[in-house]
Write a protein that binds this DNA or RNA. Structure first.
Lengths: 219, 219
DNA sequence: TCGATTGTGTGACCATGTCACTGACAAACT
DNA sequence: AGTTTGTCAGTGACATGGTCACACAATCGA
């Protein structure tokens, strides 16, 4: 068990919080979770409002054939709207949240959450914005899924996920999930990219050899 | 200009509103709009919170090829989350809202909206629930788009949109938009349904001849 | 070292979206 | 009535993408 962390101070998401609300939250400890831990599955009971302090969570939807789509990632300072939906009494649906790195999270128990919503303007604003921007991002995902070609989505995700040296530490399957496609499709398209000299393929990762070439594919 | 309507009384969405908040809203008049009116387009300024009192609004997203998807419909007592996003300062994206029938709407000006959010628990709850259930429905749409076959989506929309006698007063294009597909695809699939004896095709509408047959396709 | 697991490559096939048409029908106009 | 115009539906050809069924190579544990 870690020492009580100063998550409230570190979390700039709640920086604007009033002193009174701050006091109420001060007692909560951040919980540490290992990478790979499943935060919730379809049908789970929701016990509180989840705030990610450090690390990254992926929220996935799985189809009947086993194909998966990454709905969104939760980064530090963000919350899991899925659980918020549950707290507000909306039935949930089939999505799964997985810790993609080691995590520190804070769980605000439902009664405290409800109380803060009523009493803290800053907290309310925070929750509203979280909702709004998540809705926004889901709509963008929908738009990409419905209207954008694989080639473009793939190029975009490669550029998004590469490090400074241009290396993308993802398997083809990871990339396929991220863009809502199938592994085989990604493999084939990557091979094409390879033949065009845009990338070099290795087992488990990809080297981008022409960033500008990929960027041209996005427009 | 219609007489001041009693929209607040008629709208059971805000039935639980406190007396004080009710007073603030009492001065607002419902606005009547004709069918076909475009409520907003991408890039429009948002002046207030929109509540539909009667009629139905369709919110569509259009792709570069001209293909359209119905994101959701707004029915009486519901709000347009798109405008709410705007009010909360989230940039909006390319969606369009069209009156599908004649409408009565109420627009709560931004300052009053903000004030109600701060002072009325019931109003806040209403807005939160609106957000939550819209997010929910958008996710379901995403799920259908990503994982469900045309046949199933088409059968579902036919059953959803038929009247008591089994007639669906929609063109193939309407149905295609509703399920996020293309007109030609819907035409072909409908012809197949016809050959199987599930529907009879006419110009401008469709007669369902075997409800149970369509239901079997959904599962 | 020997499986077992994981990541990738491939071919075949089906479902769907797109393009480019055609014709059928209905409302409006002369 | 005939003509025009616009909407709606049917169709063939083709490209893209998802699914299935494999093969094979790299990696990792026991």
């Amino acid at each position: 068990m870690p020492a009580v962390t100063d998550w409230l101070t570190r979390s700039n998401a709640l920086a604007a919080l009033e002193a009174r609300a701050r006091e109420r939250l001060a007692g909560l400890k951040a919980i540490e979770l290992p990478a790979g831990k499943v935060l919730f599955r379809p049908g789970d009971e929701v016990s509180g409002f989840v705030l990610v302090v450090s690390g990254r969570v992926g929220v996935y939807m799985t189809g009947p054939t086993g194909r998966e789509i990454l709905l969104y990632s939760i980064t530090p300072g963000e919350t899991c709207v899925q659980t918020t939906l549950g707290l507000l009494g909306v039935e949930d649906y089939s999505a799964e949240a997985v810790a993609e790195t080691a995590l520190e999270i804070v769980v605000i128990p439902k009664p405290l959450f409800m109380d803060l919503l009523d009493t803290s303007t800053a907290f309310r604003t925070f929750v509203f914005h979280a909702f709004a921007s998540r809705l926004q991002s889901i709509m963008q995902l929908l738009e990409r899924l419905a209207f954008t070609k694989i080639e473009e989505r793939l190029a975009a995700i490669l550029l998004e996920r590469c490090d400074e040296t241009g290396r993308v530490r993802n398997t083809h399957q990871d990339l396929a999930t991220a863009i809502g496609s199938a592994r085989e499709v990604v493999s084939r398209r990557l091979e094409l990219f390879g033949r065009k000299g845009l990338v070099a393929l290795e087992r488990g990762h990809i080297e981008i050899t022409s960033k500008s070439g990929l960027m041209r594919l996005i427009g």
